[in-house]
């Protein structure tokens, strides 16, 4: 641990592979994904359902069900091997190093305790401070996430808050122990448009203020564009393209990333046909051979069926996993 220097990335994931045993046989939910995350950096993970974004988050927090899961590869957090952490170390890792926010605040809050108490309890558990200090911290956190009249809100039960406010309270809970890495799993998806943008802006500000690294999972390209420094596009358990948000979202290289962007409806296209990707994402229990996207890909060649393409550099800080990517990007 002492060998760790500030210039190394905060989080380094290498060949992370997650398999599940299911009724229909083993599936590979995550297939050799690798990425680095610098301090204070925001990585957006974009993908459709079943692409492995949420599994990635759960693997990072090590909350996957142990019995049915096999994990290989490595996750290094400040040089520490997360996959080797013992029970006690894990408890401190979750909360002190990494915290997670969810789409549904009800997953984070217990309905029978007040919001203030739950935040304070987390602080007491991780920082071993007094309850008074913990409540003070809880108040500070609610103010930080800009909940109006925070002091009286400490005594609210989760159901007494509106959806947007509960989401803010959950952010306060996650940030109470000042984690170095925040995992955000579609935290704005269930919110109304006018509330969603408020929460995105809040997360963006807090992330800058606290210098905290964030992985933000979303299926919405627009949300990813609003918050990410870099984005990774996932498909069928693999990262197919990664690079700066501006590069990937404005000129995607991988055919899937291109298809995803062209099928995202945006402002000035009324009347035009949407360029939809044909077919549907593969069944993880029944994956096509070679490139998982090849059956839906207009540019697929016979060779695409034979090899699983490895991520290759396609410009500064940019990679794509497609054997045709040279010809595509050109």
């Amino acid at each position: 641990m002492s060998a760790f220097t500030a210039r190394e990335p905060l989080l380094s994931v290498r060949d992370l592979t997650v398999g599940f045993k299911t009724d229909r046989g083993p599936i590979t939910a995550l297939d050799r994904i690798s990425f680095d995350l610098g301090r204070g950096e925001v990585l957006g993970l974009i993908g459709e359902s079943g692409s492995g974004k949420s599994v990635t988050m759960r693997a990072l927090l090590r909350i996957l069900p142990q019995k049915r899961t096999t994990i290989s590869g490595s996750i290094l957090m400040e040089g520490r091997d997360v996959l080797a952490l013992k029970r006690r170390e894990l408890a401190s890792y979750r909360g002190n190093d990494v915290a997670m926010i969810f789409q549904e605040p009800s997953l984070a809050f217990d309905p029978v305790f007040t919001v203030g108490r739950q935040i304070a309890e987390t602080v007491v558990r991780h920082k071993q401070c007094s309850w008074d200090a913990a409540y003070a911290r809880a108040l500070e956190m609610l103010e930080l996430v800009r909940i109006p009249s925070a002091k009286s809100r400490l005594d609210n039960y989760p159901h007494e808050m509106s959806g947007g406010m509960r989401q803010r309270a959950m952010i306060a809970l996650a940030l109470a122990c000042s984690p170095k890495l925040l995992l955000a799993d579609e935290p704005t998806t269930a919110l109304d448009a006018t509330v969603q943008i408020q929460v995105i802006l809040l997360l963006r500000e807090l992330q800058k203020e606290l210098g905290m690294a964030t992985i933000f999972v979303t299926h919405d390209v627009g949300v990813a564009a609003e918050i990410s420094d870099r984005v990774a596009v996932m498909y069928a358990g693999r990262i197919v393209e990664m690079g700066s948000a501006a590069d990937v979202l404005k000129s995607p290289a991988h055919p899937y990333a291109r298809g995803l962007l062209s099928s995202t409806i945006h402002g000035a296209m009324a009347g035009e046909r949407v360029e939809a990707i044909p077919g549907m994402p593969p069944d993880l229990a029944n994956m096509p051979s070679g490139c998982a996207f090849s059956p839906r890909c207009a540019m697929a060649m016979p060779e695409c069926r034979n090899v699983i393409p490895a991520p290759a550099s396609v410009g500064a800080g940019r990679s794509a996993a497609c054997i045709r990517v040279g010809s595509v990007a050109a």
């Binding site: 947007g164 448009a193 564009a225 979202l249 995202t264």
Partner: peptide, 25 residues
């Protein structure tokens, strides 16, 4: 107008700078 301004921008270089309205419906 607020609803329109709340739509996330698709361009990382033209992000929304401030929330058009505060609070929940």
């Amino acid at each position: 107008r607020a609803l329109l301004a709340s739509m996330p921008s698709l361009d990382p270089e033209k992000r929304t700078l401030s929330a058009p309205i505060a609070g929940d419906p």
